[in-house]
Design a protein around this nucleic acid. Structure first.
Lengths: 107, 107
DNA sequence: AACTTATATGAATGTTTGTTCATACATTCA
DNA sequence: TGAATGTATGAACAAACATTCATATAAGTT
C-alpha cells in the first residue's frame, strides 16, 4: 500500500513535463560541438571572446552567438575587462556534466 | 617547460574535434523531452513499447522512432517477448547522466 | 490460413537551430 | 573627437530533427 503510493508519486513526477523539458533544455545546450568545445576550453581557464575564437578556430560571430546561449542557460558568466569580455564557467556543475559524459564515451 | 608541454597536449586534446563531436552527439540524444521521459521511465523498470506509449501519453510511432535513436546511441537495449519488445536501460551511465543533470537543475 | 495485436519504418511536413554576413555597439587610444 | 579594436546582434539560409500518417513486418491466436 505504501509502495503503491510511492509508485503513484513517481508516476506523477514522471508525467511532470516541465521538469523533463528543463532537463532536455539543459542537455540540448551540451548537444552541440561548438558549445561543448567552448565549455571545455573554459574548463582550462577563463578566456575572452577573441581567445576562444582563435583557440578553437571558430568565427568570432559564431562564438558570440553560442556564448549567448551558454550564458542564457547559466553555464557561463562574463565580466568586462577593458575592451574585452572575459568568459568563465558559471559553476562546477558544468565540469561535472562534461566529465559524466566523457566517462560514458570512454567506456 | 614541463608545464608548457602539458599545455600543448591539452591544446591538442581540445582541438580533437572527434572527441567533442562524440560528446555533443551523446548529449544531443538527451536533449529532447520525449527521449528524456522515455529514459526516466526506464529508470523505474523495463517496459515494452505500448507501456511506454501509454505511460507517457506519446504516440506509439513517436516512441518507436525515439527508441531507435536511443538504441542506436546504445542508451537502451531491447529483447523480444512474444509479440512485444521490452526495452531497458543499456547501462548505469544513463542513470548517472540523468542524475547529473537533475542536480544542476535542482540548484 | 486468416485475423489480431505489437512494433517498426518511410515519406511528408513544420519547426528548430547553427552559421554566415553585414552592421551596430562599446571601449580604448591617439 | 575620430580611428581602431573587441564584441554583440539581426536577418537570411541551409541543415537537422521530431511528429504524424500510412503502411509494412512480425508474432501470437482462433
Amino acid at each position: 500500500m505504501e509502495n503503491e503510493n510511492v509508485s503513484k508519486i513517481k508516476d506523477a513526477i514522471l508525467r511532470n513535463n516541465e521538469l523533463f523539458d528543463a532537463l532536455a533544455e539543459l542537455y540540448k545546450v551540451f548537444g552541440d560541438g561548438t558549445r561543448v568545445r567552448i565549455l571545455c576550453a573554459l574548463t582550462q581557464s577563463e578566456m575572452n571572446v577573441s581567445e576562444i575564437s582563435a583557440f578553437l578556430d571558430i568565427t568570432q560571430s559564431a562564438v558570440s552567438h553560442q556564448l549567448r546561449v551558454l550564458k542564457t542557460s547559466s553555464l557561463v558568466k562574463s565580466r568586462r575587462k577593458g575592451k574585452t569580455m572575459i568568459y568563465s564557467l558559471a559553476d562546477e556543475h558544468v565540469r561535472a556534466i562534461i566529465d559524466c559524459g566523457m566517462e560514458h564515451i570512454a567506456e
